[in-house]
């Protein structure tokens, strides 16, 4: 009997290992094949491929700086919007809202996560872009655009399309993911801790800031980076509202492109080997950027853990 149990255990262990190995193999396979596919571009343009702004399919001259910049700027903008809102939602649901209200609101937020990104893109283009063009962009250009240094970020004609619009749409898309993670971990805080703090006379804000957040911060950071990962790779919605222009522009009101949008737009008609390879190289770069973000998240978590230990 004991023997059979040991055998069952080793089979189970083997299956679990196989499942893990499968994911790792797929991961390595994708990384390797995008690297091989993109190699002609890296070989031709050298390491400066990531720092050049050229994107000329006729002369077969390519550089990845504009898509990289567009990807990172829109993702960062989306997090600036999404994190405070998601935090507010999670606090409201776990600390403030009466129980009968919390259920329906949670469901509504989960529904937001289920909307396909193409719908966000269409809504962005048909409803949000005209709003930005008529109201927000002109106002930003007339107010912040006049400041000496900051002004460069808010200059240019009010197209409505551009990095700011894309960042806001991405932010809305990411909110439900971050909010769901935050809400789930906030509910895991033992009520004994929370009630002790209240018993000591802490206000609601003090409980959240000094008890709930420290207890859950690793998971909260994890949730934020999950959202950031999604924002970095989002394709359809961004394609609709970013403007798809390969021009380097500091202004957040100017159109740009992102790695995922450039690949989705141009892959089918990439008519030369160099062009195709430049697009695959972009795919590899997105892979690397996402990897760097995850490593950064891990390091941040380690530092937080060390600080908490002190």
């Amino acid at each position: 009997m004991a023997h059979a149990g040991a055998r069952g255990d080793s089979i189970f262990g083997g299956l679990a290992l196989a499942a893990t190995a499968f994911v790792l193999l797929v991961l390595a396979g994708i990384a390797l094949s995008t690297l091989i596919g993109g190699w002609p571009a890296f070989a031709r343009f050298g390491a400066s491929f990531v720092a050049r702004t050229a994107w000329d399919p006729v002369q077969r001259d390519f550089g990845a700086l504009v898509p990289i910049y567009g990807t990172i700027v829109t993702a960062v903008l989306s997090m600036l919007l999404a994190v405070p809102i998601a935090f507010g939602i999670a606090i409201f649901l776990t600390e403030v809202a009466p129980r009968p209200l919390a259920g329906p609101i949670s469901a509504a937020i989960e529904l937001l996560a289920g909307i396909p990104s193409i719908i966000y893109g269409m809504w962005g283009l048909f409803v949000f872009v005209p709003f930005m063009a008529d109201w927000v962009d002109p106002w930003l250009a007339a107010s912040l655009g006049r400041l000496p240094v900051l002004g460069a970020l808010f200059s240019g004609p009010p197209l409505g399309l551009g990095m700011l619009t894309a960042g806001i749409i991405l932010g809305v898309m990411v909110v439900p993911f971050v909010a769901a993670v935050m809400r789930d971990v906030f509910t895991l805080v033992p009520s004994a801790l929370r009630e002790s703090a209240f018993a000591l006379g802490a206000t609601r804000w003090e409980v959240v800031w000094h008890v709930v957040l420290p207890y859950t911060r690793t998971a909260v950071v994890g949730g934020i980076f999950l959202g950031l990962g999604r924002a970095l790779g989002e394709t359809m919605a961004v394609t609709f509202v970013l403007g798809n222009a390969h021009d380097f522009n500091l202004s957040l009101l100017a159109p740009s492109t992102s790695i995922a949008a450039a690949i989705a737009n141009e892959f089918t008609e990439a008519d030369s080997a160099t062009y195709l390879s430049a697009l695959i190289a972009l795919g590899f770069i997105l892979f690397v950027v996402t990897f760097i973000v995850l490593v950064f998240a891990k390091l941040l978590l380690l530092r937080l853990a060390r600080q908490a230990g002190r």
Partner: peptide, 30 residues
């Protein structure tokens, strides 16, 4: 400066995906 191809290095403007994308942008941008 630019040349001929199925896609070129556009010196100005924004890009819409497909005919419908360009039509949508033109209808929305004054």
């Amino acid at each position: 400066k630019i040349g001929v191809g199925t896609s070129v290095s556009w010196p100005a403007g924004v890009g819409g995906k497909g005919n419908e994308g360009v039509a949508a942008y033109v209808q929305r941008l004054k």
